[in-house]
Design a protein around this nucleic acid. Structure first.
Lengths: 192, 192
DNA sequence: AGAAGTAATGTAATATTATTACATATCATT
DNA sequence: AATGATATGTAATAATATTACATTACTTCT
């Protein structure tokens, strides 16, 4: 292996990055979700997901690459892209096309008291809607808007188009940035 | 200048590429539209738009670059990106984020017997919806689906999000490709 | 027409994002 | 332990996009 990093050895599962308890819970939940789909949540993938979960705004692949380097690994682009592909395929993250960057699926971010795995899979796999703020860079997933997807399904039905995935990206100014006159990156986007 | 190309000098407006009559009409219409917005439709921009109009599937920036080289010019990337930016800003083309490629705005493709300029500007500027076929590469703009945009506006209203632009991209199989069992790129996408 | 200012284009270099191809290692099962 | 499948390492390169600065062309004003 190559685990002679500065991070102290831990009995917890693979916490090379000192992820917060909350994020570790999310990671555990993600692990369960992808196990259900027959996927293997390796340490590498877990770390990448953890980094995406830790960010307050979408993260680029090469950003992640840099961050991964601070651990004991020396990853190259394919490493990160493979991890991202895996996470995308299992609906754990989404790609924001307009930013070439990645965010966690919102379902991972909320409470996991009950088993919402079915909801998650149904709703998130390869489809998502986002509000992207041009000022603060914050991105909000609008998972509570099934209507959008319904309308799209309807249209596709009429046109005999077989929908496999869909993305909706709205760019503009979030509530906070709309009201701030400063024109500066005036606030921290509401964290995930 | 640099107009010693093989293309014979023409009395028609800048038809370096031998665009069809239909495309020239569309180009003329586009010229009128962007004049209304105070834009200058130069020969370069016209040629780029013509090439986008001529393609049956979305075209990448570097594809266009190659094609432009066959004329008397020796363009570099900024040339093409500037032209594309101009055309985007004036709602004459759209960018398909998932493909990093460009298509003409559907409003240019249909008949221009009457003045739909207002419709065009309202509807196309910075917002569009697409069905993207993974098999044949064809892309259909669904301009007849204001409902999608309405739903989005509604959501943004509730969240106090100021929408500046929106894109909806649905990926899957078009009607023809859904029905063809071949698994091959079995047909030419319905032309623009 | 000539001068001045603005808008557009040319050019070289480089940044950013993503993939290919092939070697090695790890895991799960027998 | 041997096998096959899955995952990761590594080097090279492809594809997409931007920066910074020089030059040219258009427009307007006198």
């Amino acid at each position: 292996m190559n685990m002679q990093t500065r991070t102290p050895p831990s009995s917890l599962p693979d916490n090379s990055y000192g992820f917060s308890d909350r994020i570790q819970q999310q990671l555990d939940h993600a692990g369960r979700l992808c196990a259900l789909q027959g996927g293997r949540m390796t340490a590498q993938r877990r770390d990448v997901l953890g980094l995406v979960l830790s960010a307050t705004t979408p993260v680029g692949a090469y950003d992640l690459l840099e961050q991964l380097k601070t651990s004991g690994r020396k990853p190259a682009p394919p490493t990160i892209y493979r991890a991202l592909d895996f996470l995308l395929e299992h609906g754990l993250i989404h790609r924001i096309e307009r930013l070439s960057a990645f965010v966690p699926c919102t379902h991972l971010l909320h409470d996991h008291a009950h088993d919402h795995s079915h909801d998650h899979t149904d709703a998130c796999l390869h489809s998502a809607q986002f509000l992207i703020c041009r000022n603060c860079g914050g991105v909000t997933e609008i998972a509570d808007a099934p209507r959008v997807l319904d309308v799209l399904k309807n249209i596709c039905g009429k046109k005999n188009f077989t929908m496999q995935s869909a993305s909706v990206e709205v760019e503009g100014l979030c509530e906070d940035c709309t009201h701030s006159t400063t024109g500066q990156k005036g606030h921290t986007p509401t964290p995930n």
